[in-house]
Nucleic acid binder design. Structure first.
Length: 434
DNA sequence: CATCGACCTATG
DNA sequence: ATAGGTCGAT
């Protein structure tokens, strides 16, 4: 059958199982994409895009649509009428940005296969939550966005980030939203702003302004972090480059995970969880599994992790507990554990059904609905991972109790140190043996 | 070191 | 009380 390309768009062959825009752009990785519903044909067809997604990226607006097997893209500029060679160059830039941002060289289906083999919990979810991958974001935007994320929800983080851009970076251009079916009066144009550079947020009065914009206590963190970055010796403005401070963050991509994390933790408002999000989402540390209350709940519910705490009410996320939960999930999922984590996290987002995704029926939360009876993985593939601990009886391990009758993923009790290098070595051994 | 209270604000 | 926590003081 004929493939229809929306007017003005280019087509890139990307199966929806490799990338689901509807899931990825709204699951709390980037908070800056705008989403517009498209008019639907009288005969509904799954082949036709249902939404358009837009992002203001420095000098241009990226517009995306998606069908089952194609990604459609176009870019809009303030000066739309330029010579054809210039236009061609711009399209090439946009295309290469897309490949980088969505990391299209990574075969997500292959990863889903590997995770399914390692983990039955994942296996039972994969069909409902396909196409969920980690974006390769800009580190500076990622840093600021996730400083906003503490004690916060996606809806409000999104509002805050948009307010930040509106207030601290000049408008690039205004566009009408995609044509709506009513064809009645066109909607008002929307003004798009790029993400502001560190220098725009570094002065001390910014904190008060951000508070006024509803940032709460995060306002000071953002301003002080921007200040720190601008003041770094290595990030003094270079001629012609206004945002040289951002380069410093980008350099962390070349450093080992532990070093990069150490650097990130120096910024105010950046604790372990936020640092790990940045490592995973913009610094290429694909193995990092950030642990928030949400992911922790998933680990407890579906991976049989129990914690013994003195306070009867709730387990506080101590550094030790964080390490163990994160490490355990890494052991389950392997080198791309951070990517796997995002699938589970997205699957469990309650707000998901509100975005019209074909995920769950009614408002059942994703994972619970898909997995009323958790089944553990290595029961089906015991050779993949070595069991530790005594069978047939619950065992207490450094504050964590794992019931071995129902759980196959056991925390290593051999030492207190659970660094990634050790885990990788250990995994190499077990893999080469098998 | 683990633990605790404070911190902004908007929802259930 | 909780939302994808972090900071500073015991």
């Amino acid at each position: 059958m004929a493939v229809t390309i929306p007017v003005g768009f280019h087509a890139l062959p990307v199966p929806i199982v490799q990338l689901s825009l509807a899931a990825v752009l709204k699951c709390g990785q980037s908070f800056r994409w705008s989403i517009y519903p498209l008019p639907q044909a009288s005969i509904p067809s799954s082949e036709l895009p249902t939404h358009e997604y837009r992002l203001c990226l420095r000098d241009r607006i990226i517009c995306l649509r998606q069908s089952t097997d194609s990604l459609f893209y176009r870019s809009m500029f303030p000066d739309q009428h330029v010579c054809s060679t210039q236009a061609t160059l711009r399209e090439a830039e946009t295309l290469s940005w897309l490949k980088d941002y969505f990391q299209l060289d990574i075969d997500l289906v292959k990863l889903y296969d590997e995770w399914s083999e390692r983990d039955n919990v994942f296996k039972n979810l994969r069909s409902r939550f396909s196409g969920i991958r980690i974006l390769r974001q800009d580190p500076w935007e990622n840093l600021v966005s996730f400083i906003c994320s503490s004690n916060n929800n996606i809806a409000r983080i999104t509002k805050m980030v948009h307010a930040l851009c509106r207030h601290y970076s000049p408008p690039l251009l205004s566009l009408r939203p995609p044509m709506t079916e009513g064809a009645s009066a066109d909607s008002d144009p929307i003004t798009y702003h790029p993400f502001p550079p560190p220098s725009a947020l570094a002065s001390s009065e910014v904190a008060a302004t951000l508070r006024g914009l509803g940032f709460g206590y995060r306002a000071d963190f953002i301003q002080r972090t921007a200040r720190m970055l601008v003041d770094m010796p290595d990030s003094q403005p270079i001629t012609g480059q206004q945002h040289a401070a951002e380069r410093w963050l980008l350099l962390l991509r070349n450093k080992p995970t532990a070093i990069a994390r150490e650097e990130l933790l120096k910024f105010v408002g950046v604790g372990r969880k936020v640092a790990d999000c940045i490592l995973l989402m913009s610094l290429d540390k694909k193995e990092v599994v950030p642990i928030d209350t949400h992911v922790y709940q998933i680990a407890v519910k579906h991976y049989g992790l129990h914690v013994v705490t003195k306070s009867k009410t709730k387990a506080t996320m101590t550094p030790k507990l964080y390490e163990e939960v994160s490490g355990k999930l890494f052991d389950i999922w392997g080198d791309y554990a951070g990517w796997a984590h995002s699938v589970l996290f997205t699957a469990d987002l309650k707000s998901f059904s509100a975005y019209g995704l074909p995920s769950t029926t009614a408002e059942g939360d994703g994972i619970d609905h898909a997995l009323s009876t958790p089944t553990m993985s290595s029961s089906s593939s015991p050779s993949k991972r070595k069991r530790r601990g005594t069978l047939h009886s619950p065992k207490e391990l450094a504050g964590i109790v794992v019931d071995i009758d129902t759980v196959s993923h056991v925390i290593d009790e051999s030492n207190d140190e659970t660094n990634m290098a050790d885990r990788i070595k250990r995994r190499r051994r077990t893999v080469t043996k098998a």
